[in-house]
Design a protein around this nucleic acid. Structure first.
Lengths: 329, 329
DNA sequence: GCGGCGTTCTAGAGCGCTCTAGTTCTCTGG
DNA sequence: CCAGAGAACTAGAGCGCTCTAGAACGCCGC
């Protein structure tokens, strides 16, 4: 009934515990013949190494802690890629969710209790002092967010550039009245807002720049859409994220405003929903796979003492042009 | 730099390791005075118990393993409630994600490697033999899915009843041509399909029963909607889940088909999206909090040898009537 | 003044593993 | 024929904790 241990396998194979340990770890120091024999016995007994004991005994735990928000589709993407990137390099991943009644600090604490060697924070809007304190204890990579803390690495996408791509795309189609529905107090919203202003300015459209309060959820986009539909509507809208854009689109369609004929819409994130055949949302795309892989790579580089060039890696986003943008009529 | 251990706290407090252990665990056997003193020293040193060592040494790990699908909004809800239900009862939770390149078996294996005492499977469509094998090793609670395996507990919502509620609601509004857009090969789809047929039959609408192939994603709903719009459209549609309903709604609105005036739509899941102000989708609601709490309760009951009455707990769903249903015109 | 009892504390084994420092056993070359 | 190298294997300590068994210390009643 109980789990078989190294001891059990060793006894059955007639070798020492240490040898079995060498074999199951794939470490050098065992002949091919015994390797095969031990492995087959381990298999037969249904032996699985106890990660608690392994973690405790080893000087390295090879454990990467990841915090994330469960209900955020982009984070699901990230997590998936973090798993595979870590696995490829021989690291394990332990997840800790940030939810409405499980604050970032709690999520981080449980990670620490697992004695992971490095932390990748995707879901945690941790404030700078806490972040710095954490960064002094172990390598920390903040994913997708800016921070002033010098104690942590950052892997993110260039928001400024993403917004500029969107504005440029719309401007090149001939739009001038391009409105930005912002993210309210959501993370990164302020940065995107000012990037929008700058981009409009560069296009000589500073006069037309107009920011409408939004948020990170569909309903925020919907509220903004109702406000836009009431007044003189713009010819194009750039939203804080895809969810917001979806809310917007829904209200527009119901109000008989055709997208992209009457109005063009650009989202941000390239989340799965943007790719849906009936939506085909033009959106700024962040490469989740690359973001994840870089974050993992960075964390591991810090751990293994490899050279880590810059504290911050900024990826270039690209614009996924789909069906919600067209020249104004 | 290194983590302080029990030893460090003990040395500083001038007591034995065992006493410190007693204090930090809150176990009986220490005087109030030393308790306070040890606690404050532990705090001062920033001591945090090492969960690996704790797990290894204790005969109980008080660890609950949970598998889930990251991109499923309902699972995010569940996870959140599982966390708090477990915490309330003094158990910890370790999450293991099922993703497109991380099959259920892998997710379960990593849980096992953490030596959790019981497993709650929300994301894993595990086949019966594997499930039975797992159930023989440790208490397993399958969440939201039926299974024939007698080795595991099941906590789920009565699909049959949920579907019947929806059909009854539509029938009472006066609908007769009620179509079901099914979930294809998605889990539980077959059960919902036959529940639909039965419910229609009970209403004397067996003749009108019509199933259109769908799926679990928005695009599946959209495809079904296009098919429905082409032929003689029904007056009401009941979908496999909310995501499917959202795809459906989108196509209808774009095609100028008014909801609920021309056609009523009922979803399934009561996911956050259904509650959005601009959608207000009528849907069958599963109580995530209760589902989660029951699952945790069951797992713990099995562990602690409490009486567990039935192998299966079936919750009663209810219908959240919102804005997408109305009498036919 | 002494056995008995409850409370507070400690010594030390042991959880399943990894790792260092051997030991043994070939297999060479001079 | 033996020193030396290298491969294959082992003994045993130790990771940070929990837990059992028992020690030390009052405090009671007789």
């Amino acid at each position: 009934m109980r789990h078989p241990t190294l001891e059990d396998v060793a006894a059955r194979a007639g070798v020492s515990r240490a040898l079995v340990s060498i074999v199951v770890r794939g470490a050098p120091g065992a002949s091919e013949a015994t390797r095969q024999r031990v492995l087959s016995i381990a298999d037969e007994l249904g032996y699985r190494p106890d990660s608690r004991a392994r973690l405790l005994a080893g000087r390295r735990s090879r454990l990467l802690g990841v915090t994330l928000t469960l209900n955020h589709p982009f984070h699901a993407d990230l997590a998936e890629h973090i798993y595979s990137a870590a696995e490829q390099r021989g690291y394990e991943v332990v997840l800790s969710a940030v939810t409405s009644n499980r604050p970032p600090q709690k999520a981080i604490d449980t990670l620490l209790d697992y004695r992971c060697e490095a932390a990748i924070l995707a879901g945690a809007l941790t404030r700078e002092p806490e972040l710095t304190a954490l960064g002094e204890r172990l390598p920390v990579v903040v994913l997708g967010q800016r921070t002033r803390s010098q104690a942590v690495d950052v892997v993110r996408t260039a928001d400024t550039q993403g917004i500029r791509l969107a504005v440029d795309h719309l401007a090149e189609l001939g739009h001038r009245a391009i409105v930005h529905v912002d993210g309210g107090r959501a993370p990164g919203s302020a940065a995107r807002r000012s990037a929008y202003r700058t981009a409009m300015h560069r296009r000589g459209l500073a006069e037309q720049a107009r920011v409408v309060p939004g948020g990170e959820a569909e309903e925020d986009g919907a509220a903004a859409a109702r406000e836009l539909a009431d007044r003189t509507p713009p010819t194009a809208v750039l939203t804080y994220n895809d969810r917001c854009a979806v809310g917007l689109l829904d209200v527009f369609v119901r109000a008989g405003i055709a997208v992209p004929d009457d109005i063009s819409v650009v989202g941000y994130d390239d989340s799965p929903v943007a790719r849906l055949p009936h939506l085909r949302l033009t959106t700024v795309s962040q490469d989740a796979a690359q973001l994840a892989s870089l974050a993992v790579q960075r964390a591991i580089a810090r751990l293994e003492g490899g050279a880590v060039d810059a504290r911050e890696v900024v990826l270039t986003p690209h614009l996924a042009v789909r069906g919600t943008t067209a020249p104004p009529r």
